[in-house]
Design a protein around this nucleic acid. Structure first.
Length: 119
DNA sequence: CATATGACGATAT
DNA sequence: AATATCGCCATAT
């Protein structure tokens, strides 16, 4: 069949790919708050895809103007390897009021933001 | 199609 | 407590 027939339908361009949902969620992280790779993945519909969240950011955060620095790991620590952009991320967060303790750990009980609603 | 690679997370040593 | 291993799964090659 071809596109001029009545029942023709274009293939779904992008149904709702994981990466799109991840980016949408990250865009909503409030200033001065952080969330984790795992929570983002879970809220995007795949609780086991935390690694992909990191991969997606590494690949296209800057390009999409996402607040990539507001994403940390489950332990409240920056996951960027030393010498890459770890210090940058810390600076950006501190500028927003996020506090790191002497070990470079953020108190998630204070600063974590939950994608799934409840503040 | 087969491997390799992670800005993770949970468990085992 | 610190390190190693394993499960996961989207991209890369």
């Amino acid at each position: 069949m071809n596109r001029h027939q009545p029942n023709f339908s274009m293939p779904d361009p992008l149904p709702d790919p994981f990466s799109r949902r991840v980016k949408r969620i990250i865009r909503r992280i409030p200033r001065g708050r952080v969330t984790t790779y795992g929570m983002i993945a879970a809220d995007a519909g795949n609780p086991r895809a935390a690694r992909q969240v990191g991969w997606i950011l590494h690949a296209s955060a800057r390009k999409h103007g996402l607040p990539w620095h507001r994403v940390v790991n489950r332990n409240g620590r920056v996951s960027v390897r030393r010498g890459d952009g770890d210090d940058i991320q810390k600076q950006l967060l501190e500028k927003e009021g996020v506090v790191f303790d002497e070990n470079g750990v953020i108190d998630l009980a204070v600063f974590a933001w939950f994608p799934s609603g409840l503040t």
